[in-house]
Amino acid sequence: MAPVAKLRLDQVSMTFKTPAGTFRALAPVTLSITQGRFVSLIGPSGCGKSTIFNIAAGLLQPSGGRVFIDGAEATGTIGRVGYMLQKDLLLPWRKVLDNVVLGMEIQGLPLRRARERALPLLRRYGLAGFEYLYPNALSGGMRQRAALLRTLLFDTDVILLDEPFGALDAQTKLQMQEWLLALWADFNKTVVFVTHDVEEAIYLSDEVHVMASRPGRVIETIAVPIPRPRQRHVTLLPEFITIKERCLELLALDHNAAADEAA
């Protein structure tokens, strides 16, 4: 028997009713993500990446289709996947440590035990010395680390990351990518990653899903057969560049289609 997909979206679609009529945010999308994979979604703004995440996290009831986690239906159930939104959303009245334990706390773990579990991880993953500071004392990169650790410590197998490094400067972004890959290797999570940055998507992922807008849909799935661990210079390999060219081509293609549609 073939292994059951960790996270599976089956013909998931979304339409919104607006005063101007119905708006198709998402055409039926089917995605199947295997345990332990790192998968990226790229596409133009408004192609429904965030809608997919909201549906997968149970925060949005899809107009059609179903969500499966480990083969069991999970459409519209919350708390089954870790979800990191674009903003870090650290609570300013809690210290970094208490922000990071939020997920465990909500799941009912006593605060003391949650802190005991979180503390060594904070120290191991670059937040040593920041445990008892308030978030407003942290830099953008440090805040993203704290937000990511909060998502990881929320003990779900699947984590959804919505443009976590979008607001960081180029230098910090590269550091954070390495940091994320180290975490991913240690925790054995299934990661779905949304980004605008094609190079980032390919560098991090096993598989890149390219999306198009109006309506949002997946137009092509590209495997990234570059072995891991990857050094930074893999971005210069011919196969990397071929994949990148293909992605950019697909994104540009969609742009033209949208322009034709408008004309």
Partner: peptide, 20 residues
């Protein structure tokens, strides 16, 4: 989005109220 974060962590309404 703050509420969204709490709900994505599986929070109840009472938890969102008290902690957020």
């Amino acid at each position: 989005d703050g509420e969204k974060l709490f709900y994505s962590l599986g929070a109840s309404r009472w938890q969102v109220f008290r902690k957020l």
